[in-house]
Structures are given as C-alpha cells and as structure tokens.
C-alpha cells in the first residue's frame, strides 16, 4: 500500500483539490456511472419509453384522424390531424421523461436504492450529482426526440427541413422541466407526495392544446392554459414542425430559458435539502 508515501500519490492529489461547498467539478463521474449502469438495464425498457408517444400518434392520429379529418395548423393552412398532434406528443413526451427522471427517479435513488448516500460520502458535492443526473435525463430525451422525429418522417408528417429543429427544441423543453422538477423534489418527502406530481401532470397533458386547439376554451381558461409551461412547448414544437414562426416564437423559447434558469437556481438553493437531510 502506498498511503504512507511522501511523494504525491494519486489519492493525495485527489485530496488536495479545493472546491466550493456544493460542487467538486466532477459531474463527469456521475455521468459515466449512469452510462455504465445502462449496460445492466433492460434495453427493452429503455426502448419502451420511446414507443409511448408513437402509440399515441398512431392511435389518435390515424384512428381519430379518420373521423376528424384535417385541422387548421399554426401557419393557417390545413394539416392532417396526425400532423397536428405529433409535435404536441413530442413536447408531452419531453416533459414526461424529464419530470420522471428528475422526480421519481431521483426520489427512488435517494430513498430506496440509497445510491446518492454512497455518492455523497465521496468528494462529490450535491451539485455534481444534480448536474450529472440532469445531463443523463437530457441525453435520453435527445435520443427519444430523434427517434420520434424519424417516425414522423416515416409517416409523412414532416414537410419542411425546419422540423428537424424539433429535436434541440424538445431537449430545451426537457431541460426546463428537469431543472424545475428536481427543485420540486427537494420539497417532497413521501411517496404520497410524489403522487401529487402526477396530479399536476395529467391535467397539463390533457388541457395544453395537445389534442385540440386552445380556441375551444372560453377566454379566461385560455389565459390559464397559456400560463402553463407545457402549452409553450406544444406551441413551439407545432410552429417548428411546419416552419411557421410568429412573434410568439421567441416568447416560447424565452419561457423555457427562464424556466431552466429559475429551475437551476431553485435546485441549487435547495440542494442541501434535496441531498443532505
């Protein structure tokens, strides 16, 4: 053993670095652990996350689309019902994945798998863990978004090159939700409280102009929906999918930039509550 060596051994070097109270600039280690862990996860389970929005698209787009016919798209032109809901489903899937990864997943690894307890007994700080986990969630979101966009292409729902920008845009959406989600998880203590997350998600999914235009609602309800983050994501992706941009486009993007920044701030402020009890 080399612990007593006077020259700087690897452990000595690792020990003599200096950091802030929360961050040891080593989120990389958390990321590489996550990638290594995917080796042992069931690949079918990974894949299944991608199938969910695709199934919705086929069912609602084809089945219901046969009855509804075409609807008015963002640019004012008529588009098929499938083309109308596809970007919305992508936004929903970005939201679901990010929220799942930053709430349930974090909660489980914290309280049941005791994974973070192990990590936090090392020189990692809580911010390393948070950044690593968010990065992994976004990576997965990126893969799903590419897959879904490809399916849209195969179904003939992509008519403009602009549509490829849906991929980075949905990563942005996921970033917004993941950073807020992790901050919120720091307030939750039991599984029952975790259920509340679902109670917020379900109406957001159903009401955010996913399956039908906002115009079916009376004006005050429209304002309410427009205040919900998912609606901005749905609108943004819908505009991108047909390449029809308006003055609202930067507002949608800005909404997510602010949400990400606010979420990261909240998460950082709450890191001690989240990881150090």
């Amino acid at each position: 053993m080399s612990a007593g060596l006077p020259v700087k051994s690897a452990p000595d070097q690792a020990r003599s670095r200096t950091f802030g109270p929360l961050y040891s600039r080593n989120a990389r280690a958390v990321i590489s652990r996550g990638l290594l862990a995917t080796r042992s996860t069931n690949w079918l389970v990974m894949l299944s996350g991608f199938f969910e929005p695709v199934l919705f698209l086929i069912s609602m787009g084809v089945g219901l689309g046969a009855i509804v016919g075409s609807v008015q798209g963002p640019g004012g032109g008529e588009i098929s019902y499938a083309a109308y809901i596809a970007p919305a489903l992508l936004a929903v899937s970005a939201m679901n994945g990010a929220v799942y990864d930053s709430t349930w997943n974090v909660f489980f690894k914290m309280n049941f798998a005791k994974l973070y307890q192990g990590m936090l007994y090392t020189s990692l700080g809580p911010l390393d863990v948070a950044l690593g986990e968010i990065f992994l969630a976004l990576l997965r979101g990126l893969l799903y978004a590419m897959g879904f966009t490809a399916v849209m292409g195969v179904m003939g729902l992509i008519t403009t090159p602009w549509a490829l920008l849906m991929v980075p845009a949905s990563v942005l959406i996921a970033f917004g939700f993941a950073s807020i989600g992790m901050g919120i998880t720091s307030f939750l203590k039991t599984f029952q409280q975790m259920d509340w997350v679902n109670f917020v998600m379900l109406p957001m999914f159903l009401f955010s102009a996913t399956f039908y235009p906002l115009s079916v609602y009376p004006q005050p309800i429209q304002w309410l929906i427009q205040a919900m983050p998912l609606w901005h994501g749905v609108e943004l992706l819908r505009q991108i999918s047909v390449g029809a941009f308006t003055a609202a486009t930067p507002v949608h993007i800005g909404h997510y930039l602010v949400m990400t920044a606010a979420g990261m701030l909240l998460t950082t402020l709450r890191l001690r509550q989240l990881f150090l009890k």
Binding site: N26, A29, R33, S40, Q117, S123
Partner: peptide, 20 residues
C-alpha cells in the same frame, strides 16, 4: 449502499471516480 445497478468491480472503480 452499494450501487445495485453496477457489477462488483465496477462498484469500486466508479466509486473511485467520484474522488476524481
């Protein structure tokens, strides 16, 4: 609080990575 998703040796390697 071992990392149940990793194998035995990887547990040691990955843990060491946390120390940089």
């Amino acid at each position: 609080n071992l990392d149940e998703e990793l194998r035995v040796r990887d547990n040691l390697l990955v843990y060491g990575r946390y120390f940089g």
